[in-house]
């Protein structure tokens, strides 16, 4: 899922400062699951902003709404009849959501309340980690299902680098060295010989594309 983190309130406050009528719009999908942009978070943020405005003696009208999904037109459509009533939309969607809403309502002011962070795995309750960077050219099959692009600080295909110590990464002593994980796992499988191979440079064009990447499936069209 896409993870996000609420921006510091100070930053949000600054963004919404010029506006009198604000709709806080959550998203019921990914960001709801990582507890940053669902209905609850919308309630909390709206409440905090209202209180903040009162404390500063400003009159602001802040309403709440959570869409099932902020990156799909059919759900965004719920805003159609409302959007004119507000000066700004404060979106708790991921970047895709914010942009999707903005694209549909080009006249409206759409502000992001979240920092979209990464494709996350829910490691345990309250802990999300990044294991995939969507490079578009998955090689997990040869790396014992540990992604060196994401999980090695240097993205080495032929690691580990000389900084790996006690199974930890040189860049962060709390992060396991991805290559240690790969080696250990291959060792257990008796596949260490896979490491003898030199992996050629990656094809980053699949990640970077020519601007935004697209997937187009004709069979999925209506």
């Amino acid at each position: 899922m896409i993870t996000g983190e609420r921006k510091p309130l100070s930053e949000i406050k600054e963004m919404v400062a010029p506006f009198k009528k604000i709709l806080v719009v959550g998203c019921g999908t990914c960001v709801a699951e990582c507890a940053s942009g669902g209905e609850k978070e919308v309630g909390l943020l709206a409440s905090a902003l209202r209180m903040d405005a009162r404390m500063e003696g400003r009159k602001v009208d802040i309403k709440e709404l959570t869409l099932d999904r902020q990156c799909v037109f059919e759900f965004i459509d719920q805003l159609t009849d409302l959007i004119d009533q507000y000066d700004a939309i404060l979106s708790l969607g991921c970047g895709a959501g914010v942009q999707a809403v903005a694209e549909i309502f080009p006249e409206a002011v759409i502000l992001p309340a979240l920092n979209t962070t990464f494709i996350g795995e829910t490691k345990e309750a309250g802990l999300w980690i990044e294991n995939c960077r969507a490079c578009g050219d998955c090689k997990l099959g040869v790396f014992a299902a540990v992604c060196p692009i994401t999980r090695c600080a240097k993205g080495l295909f032929n690691g580990p680098c000389g900084g790996s110590k006690d199974g930890k990464c040189e860049a962060d002593a709390n992060t396991p060295c991805a290559w240690q994980l790969i080696i250990d796992r291959l060792d257990k499988r008796g596949q260490l010989d896979l490491l003898q191979k030199i992996y050629p440079p990656a094809d980053w064009s699949r990640q970077q594309g020519k601007g935004p990447r697209k997937i187009h499936r004709e069979d999925q069209e209506i």
């Binding site: 600080a153 240097k154 993205g155 080495l156 032929n158 690691g159 050629p200």
Partner: peptide, 27 residues
């Protein structure tokens, strides 16, 4: 490969790591 960018005075820099050291040797 080089030390990780987070160590130096340019911690906000984007680490490129387009290819790694072994791939560089090969190149």
């Amino acid at each position: 490969s080089g030390d990780h960018q987070s160590f130096g005075n340019q911690a906000q820099a984007k680490g490129v790591f387009d290819i790694d050291s072994i791939q560089l040797i090969q190149t």
